[in-house]
Design a protein around this nucleic acid. Sequence first.
DNA 1: GGCGAGTCTACACACGCGTGCAGAACAGGT
DNA 2: ACCTGTTCTGCACGCGTGTGTAGACTCGCC
Lengths: 342, 342
Amino acid sequence: MSMSLGPLTGKRVRARDVAQLAGVSRSAVSRAFSQTAYIAPDTKAKVLKAAAELNYSPDSLASSLAKGRSNIVVVVLNQVDAIRGPSFHSALIRSLQESGRLPVVLSLSPMDDGASSLKKHLTFPVEGLIVMSDSVSVDVARHAVPYVRPIMLNFERTRSDVDSIVANDATGVAELVNYLWETGHRSVGFMAGRQSSISSKIRRDALALEIARRGMHLTVEASGEFAYEQAFEAAPALVAGKKPPDAIFCANDVMAFAVMDYLRLKTQHRVPEDVSIAGFDDIFMARWPIYNLSTIRQDVDSMAAAVTGILERRRDPQNRKFDPPTMVTELVLRGTIGRRER
Amino acid sequence: MSMSLGPLTGKRVRARDVAQLAGVSRSAVSRAFSQTAYIAPDTKAKVLKAAAELNYSPDSLASSLAKGRSNIVVVVLNQVDAIRGPSFHSALIRSLQESGRLPVVLSLSPMDDGASSLKKHLTFPVEGLIVMSDSVSVDVARHAVPYVRPIMLNFERTRSDVDSIVANDATGVAELVNYLWETGHRSVGFMAGRQSSISSKIRRDALALEIARRGMHLTVEASGEFAYEQAFEAAPALVAGKKPPDAIFCANDVMAFAVMDYLRLKTQHRVPEDVSIAGFDDIFMARWPIYNLSTIRQDVDSMAAAVTGILERRRDPQNRKFDPPTMVTELVLRGTIGRRER
DNA sequence: GGCGAGTCTACACACGCGTGCAGAACAGGT
DNA sequence: ACCTGTTCTGCACGCGTGTGTAGACTCGCC
């Protein structure tokens, strides 16, 4: 299998080498690899045989140049583990490459709004631009690659010149509140994410709405910036009163871990006997027995597939408008939500 | 700032557009953006002004094609959070892009050795190939991109046709063992990573060597596959005897968390009073107060910089041999290593 | 054998850019 | 005024591939 090819063997093999070996013209080689172009079956077979022999495949970049259609998709993020955790990043990358696209990752500094860095680095034609960073605005994205419709995954409000996935966070939150109600919880605290984050706002609004509908009470709120350290610092405020809320909902899982750790390390409150905890995302650590967190799951694989689906539809530019895919959330019940007898 | 450019404004601007606006030839535009080519200062200024006006920068892919030198670097991994955690991935991506390279991420299925998938996806010229997956062998990497010297970060044994970074895991482990010795530990258990992983083997060998040198005892070993779940399952074996080891060293942090969680959830052993725990990597969770893990840190930023440095040196192909950069590790002492009175 | 219809191949150009080379423009010296 | 040297620009070709088009070739029929 590994034929021990010497040190850094020669140059890449080009179409003309294959043509020479197969005894045909270079353009015949090109046609053999094209889906649409016309070519006699036996010439095609001859070419493919020679190509396999030389281990040739067409240079996809030169091909992009010639066709005027690139297969490069740029994924913009701040940190790999920012919004949906590394698992979504993995799923997205894999989905892109399995659909024959080339994922290029662009990582921004935490506070970079991308205005200059996007234009500096995006000096090549792209098929798509996927923005996972919530510090990059729609305007910046549109301006950085004016000839393409960006796919915004930071949940900025929908605009016509932008594609996005409608993450149905509100439904998931409603489901959670309903379960909390049924299990006897009446007062709820909320740990918010970043101020600028739309998803944090969506989750908070849904929480407030559903709570009000049932006559429950949103008793206390704090902001944890989506990060463990800040949430740990902010946690005391959530249980400061004489009576802590029945349950605390955190805008993501990591902050839920911080609240749990604060409660067990610094207070006498037990989870879930005294305080119930719920998170959002269902990252891999939520299943660890020490947390065993009840949370709202985003299906990262179907989200990634949805992104690829958008790119697929947008290949035909006359698809002006179509329904943005809606992502379903799932309430995952583990051990951090108890029952309150009434 | 955001001048509300209409919906999907026209095509990309090319060099000839700039040339026309500046009143020069297209090649003058090209020269204006070149570092080496000769051009009169005022023509250059004229061109750059026109370029700024049109928001132009040269297509880096077409440029690669023309120069016969690509700036694309492919990063191969299994999962984003596989070997060194997402933080190294972030650091590497950023280091690459800041050095003007284009990072393309290729994510393999967990068991994929890459033999076919690498050849299928790498259909374009690359400047470098960085392999972070330990399921991809040197031979596969060499064969997938025969014209380039891969940079292997899975610590396979050094070969002349491959570049790699010498991660000085052994020194870090020696430092740890020395500290364990000084704090009175005499018996040590080891939680290994994957069988196939070279880094796990390096760490185990270093541990065994240093322990033997001091007349300490490597009393028990288990394998946790670098993963929390498997480590949690394997943890009982480490403390099964009538007397658990004084300390347990885990080949990475995540497995250390699993062992700690097992001990506190399922046994009476306290950390660090009864059993000391040490990990490897210093991922962000190691600082969480519930773990507060003593561990061996890899400096992800300098590792990433080292990778970029290798690419830089290899731009000149006559640099046949140079010393591979050595990464220093640092012993991070937190709360999971206690003192044993003797 | 000649001729028309049909099938396929090779030529040539294009994609956007880098760069060797020839020659234009210009300055300075005699 | 003429020559030499220097400085710069534009022409033209090449990077590897896709594809419209003209024409070569085959085949069948009269």
